[in-house]
């Protein structure tokens, strides 16, 4: 025993150096200077998302007007210093409505991504982990879902549940399950063959433990990327459904809905469509850019060699 202690101590000498090497790789203060700003799309995307989140939080309190206040004397005013985005057919301030809409949009996006990711993750995880019948049944089900456009599935669900903000979230979420399920499935299939799962099995870990304690932490990074890109998709789908009258109901200020209610006046008052449209574009674009940057960062295969 004594001899091993001595070995231990000498080995530590080498080990300490190794620890230094390992810690040299990760320094938190470097995250901004080295990681985010070396990756310009990450930087742009994160700044834009940051601004959007700020707007979603404080937007309603800085809005110059009430988003639902009618003012028939100021109908169809073009953009001016009083109403920088103009007013709509009811004289409501478009700028205030778009600002309020940021929060609504984030709420819908987050909640539906949450639903889609939670179920998709579970389906993909079980399908990828189990080999045999369950895998086939689950993935064929996902294949069937993939044979319809997502918007169609969401529309059918809303038609069935009735149009409301809550049902819109559920519908958009369910329509995106297939996407998360398939990505999770692919990632799990890769991780599934790594020896650390065998090692867990040998020390007695059951299937649930292997899946939730061992697999999930290892598949989270790619799923974060997918969820970010999925957020953009969810915002777009929600706006689309609201535009069709199947989502958020008036007078709630939702971008798709604002766009929709302005569509009759496209010639007379184009600002009714331009500004909510721009808002949707900016939100979708920033999440897509951020997601792409995140993927470059987390996927070592695509990383440029340092």
């Amino acid at each position: 025993m004594n001899k091993r202690k001595i070995d231990n101590i000498i080995e530590d000498l080498g080990q300490i150096e190794f620890d230094e090497r390992a810690s040299a790789k990760f320094k938190f203060k470097d995250i901004f200077s080295k990681v985010i700003f070396k990756n310009p799309s990450m930087a742009i995307g994160s700044i834009m998302i940051f601004l959007l989140i700020i707007l979603a939080i404080i937007g309603p309190s800085i809005a110059p007007y009430d988003s639902q206040e009618l003012n028939m004397s100021e109908r169809f005013e073009s953009p001016s210093w009083n109403h920088i985005f103009g007013t709509d057919n009811m004289g409501r301030d478009i700028f205030s409505r778009v600002l309020h809409g940021t929060r609504v949009t984030f709420k819908i996006g987050l909640a539906s991504v949450g639903i889609g990711l939670a179920f998709g993750l579970l389906i993909g995880l079980f399908a990828g982990y189990s080999r045999g019948k369950l895998q086939n049944v689950l993935m064929r089900f996902i294949d069937i879902l993939y044979s319809f456009p997502a918007l169609l599935i969401a529309m059918a669900l809303v038609a069935f549940l009735g149009p409301s903000t809550r049902n819109l979230i559920i519908a958009v979420g369910i329509a995106s399950i297939r996407y998360y399920a398939r990505v999770t499935y692919g990632v799990v299939l890769v991780e599934r063959n790594k020896p650390y799962l065998d090692a867990a099995e040998i020390v007695g870990a059951g299937a649930l433990r292997q899946m939730f304690r061992h697999l999930i932490p290892n598949i989270v990074p790619p799923l974060i990327v997918v969820a970010t890109l999925g957020f953009a998709g969810a915002v777009l789908n929600a706006a689309g459904l609201s535009f069709l009258g199947l989502g958020v109901q008036p007078p709630t200020p939702e971008w798709g809905l604002i766009l929709s209610s302005g569509r009759n006046y496209i010639i007379r008052a184009p600002w009714l469509l331009i500004f909510p449209g721009l808002a949707i574009m900016v939100a979708v674009l920033s999440f897509n850019i951020f997601g792409d940057g995140l993927r470059d960062l987390l996927d070592p295969k695509q990383q440029r060699k340092v």
Binding site: L13, G14, E17, R21, A24
Partner: peptide, 11 residues
Amino acid sequence: QMPGIVPSIYK
């Protein structure tokens, strides 16, 4: 056995 490990190239 040789104690320790190869020194870090960062040092």
